[in-house]
């Protein structure tokens, strides 16, 4: 089960190539089952939630009427800001006298901070010292019906009976405002997107993003952007088999408002896009896919 626990974490932050040992990750989080735990893990919720709500669009143009299709994959990364790398922790347990110290969060410096007592020493756990939390998601967008596109993302993988299935399910709709308003040469649309992510009974995450998007097409390029309001939660509940102790966190991502700007390169059906979202937890996203009837040139 130990090896499974580390896998859970790695999957959460997308580090599928790492071989950190399970014992190690338990040592990262087990000491923080008390009041410090939430602050230690909060940056994971911020980054993971922001990642979930990203990579949904690369264009605001919605053909009306007409068939429109995009299938691709987005690689998303949340750069961890300096303020999310440390927090003020208080010594726990029976250590005396109680003290506070500025210590690493789960993404912070991989360095032990100590507090001294009566010959005793309290060792605050280090972080794993990473600069960005990545995620990759598949995307499918299809339309349009009355100027409305539907978007989906789904991935699932069975990790065995100890954990169960890892599953990502997302859906969304975007509706053209350009069909009602004389906004040429810009395209404008409203979008709403919902994500659910789970790993067995251990991790349960969800997020939603509501946004207004705009794009401007120039030759092979589409400049796009948007303003969005979002929310996300990350619940983790894990019982260590060795001693029955529990790690349980119910965390809400700090991101609420985000502004996005990006550029899509249209090479016929091949679409390459990149965007940056400014928020409390900013996001960088790169997309690659095949799109059909996604540009106005096609229409002309």
């Amino acid at each position: 089960m130990k090896s499974n626990f580390v896998l859970l974490f790695l999957l959460c932050i997308g580090l599928t190539a790492s071989n950190l040992h399970a014992q190690d990750f338990e040592d990262f989080v087990k000491k923080y089952t008390g009041a410090n735990g939430k602050d230690f893990m909060q940056p994971l919720a911020d980054a993971f939630g922001a990642n979930l709500n990203s990579g949904w669009y690369h264009n605001a143009y919605i053909a009306k009427p007409g068939f429109q299709l995009y299938i691709g994959v987005s690689a998303i990364a949340a750069p961890i800001p300096a303020k999310n790398r440390t927090f003020t922790a208080t010594t726990e347990g029976f250590f005396t006298p109680q003290q506070q110290a500025e210590v690493p969060t789960i993404f912070g410096e991989n360095k032990i901070i100590k507090a001294s007592g009566e010959g005793t020493e309290y060792q605050f756990p280090p972080g794993i010292d990473i600069q960005r939390a990545p995620m990759a998601v598949p995307n499918l967008t299809i339309g349009s019906v009355l100027g409305t596109n539907a978007s989906f993302r789904w991935a699932a993988y069975d990790l065995g009976e100890d954990i169960g299935k890892i599953e990502l399910l997302g859906w969304g709709i975007s509706h053209s405002l350009s069909q009602y308003l004389p906004l040429e040469p810009f395209d404008v649309a409203l979008g709403y997107y919902m994500n659910q992510f789970g790993i067995g009974d251990v991790v349960d995450a969800s997020g939603w993003l509501a946004s207004i998007q705009a794009s401007y097409q120039w030759h092979l390029f589409t400049l796009y952007g948007g303003i969005g309001y979002e929310n996300s939660i990350l619940d983790i509940n894990y019982t260590f088999e060795e001693d029955g102790s529990e790690v349980a966190f119910d965390l809400e991502g700090n991101n609420k408002m985000r502004g996005t700007i990006g550029l899509t390169l249209n090479l016929g059906p091949v679409k390459l896009n990149s965007d940056y979202s400014v928020a409390r937890q900013s996001i960088f996203s790169v997309g690659f896919g095949l799109g059909f009837n996604e540009t106005k040139m096609k229409r002309r």
Binding site: A17, K31, F124
Partner: peptide
């Protein structure tokens, strides 16, 4: 594909400190 994306940049050996 997800794993390949993660490996695109390669891996390195890091020394981690634990408690």
């Amino acid at each position: 594909l997800v794993i390949i994306l993660g490996c695109l940049w390669g891996c390195e050996t890091r020394t981690f400190t634990f408690v």
